[in-house]
């Protein structure tokens, strides 16, 4: 579905991605794990053309989308749920969700869009209750639901998720991840970036480990979760020393 071939992305003279290649197959959840500054968000931003790569190729269903502008990429079926949610705080939940379907509304697909709205409200029932409320007044977890809902309103083939667990209570993280599983069952392909490596590996089918701009490891998530290097670097040792403090994944 989504194929990334040797992309290199820079911020000015600083190289953030070094010939990164990854593949996301139809119906998969693929996760990217890595430390702060490894290039995880840059990878998503490169795919969505917010920070276009300087070299390499990005293919969607075999079509080269590398040099397309952001809005064209959304139109082709890639939508991004950005880090820290980035919702429009001064707009209602309803308007936030509707904005996600902006391109389709312009094409006059009003019926389709209101069906999708119903779909998002079924996915996150709390949003139905809060639909008239200003999005900025919601709790962190609800705001994350708005962000994911907004992403889904573009009816994407591939959903890019940047740290959906960021700043959320464990219970809410569980809730969000439950919805991601449901989305996958319903056929949405997901590329997930997470610092919560354990949760990401438990959820996804396959995963890539990004280290200072390079893919260092990849494989089935089940295998990576028991890989010694991954354990040491990203999962801590909480399994062996459950009470030890100060060690975090």
């Amino acid at each position: 579905m989504l194929e990334i071939v040797k992309i290199s992305t820079y911020y000015g003279y600083v190289q953030a991605l070094k010939e990164v290649s990854i593949e996301v197959r139809d119906g998969e959840i693929v996760s990217i794990i890595g430390a702060n500054g490894a290039g995880k968000s840059t990878l998503l931003n490169s795919i969505s053309a917010i920070v276009p790569p300087r070299s390499g190729q990005i293919l969607l269903d075999g079509k080269d989308i590398t040099r397309l502008p952001v809005e064209a990429i959304v139109g082709m079926g890639i939508s991004q749920v950005p880090e820290r949610r980035q919702i429009f705080s001064a707009l209602s939940v309803y308007d936030n969700l509707f904005l996600g379907a902006y391109l389709r509304l312009r094409k006059g697909k009003k019926r389709e869009v209101s069906d999708d709205l119903e779909y998002v409200f079924n996915l996150f029932p709390i949003l139905r209750e809060r639909r008239g409320q200003l999005a900025g007044t919601l709790s962190g977890g609800e705001q994350q639901m708005v962000a994911i809902g907004r992403g889904l309103m573009a009816r994407p083939k591939v959903l890019l998720l940047d740290e959906p667990s960021l700043g959320l209570a464990p219970l809410l993280v569980k809730e969000i991840f439950r919805v991601l599983l449901q989305l996958r069952q319903e056929g949405t392909t997901i590329l997930l970036v997470e610092q919560n490596a354990r949760a990401a590996l438990e959820l996804s089918d396959r995963a890539y480990v990004l280290e200072t701009g390079r893919i260092e490891l990849s494989g089935a998530s089940k295998e990576l979760i028991s890989n010694e290097e991954v354990k040491k670097a990203y999962l801590g040792r909480m399994d062996r020393h459950p009470k030890r403090k100060g060690v975090r994944p």
Binding site: R67, L68, P69, E71, A72, G75, M76
Partner: peptide, 10 residues
């Protein structure tokens, strides 16, 4: 300028 080169969006 960008518009003159970028392939037209569908």
């Amino acid at each position: 300028p960008g518009a003159e080169k970028a392939p037209a969006a569908k």
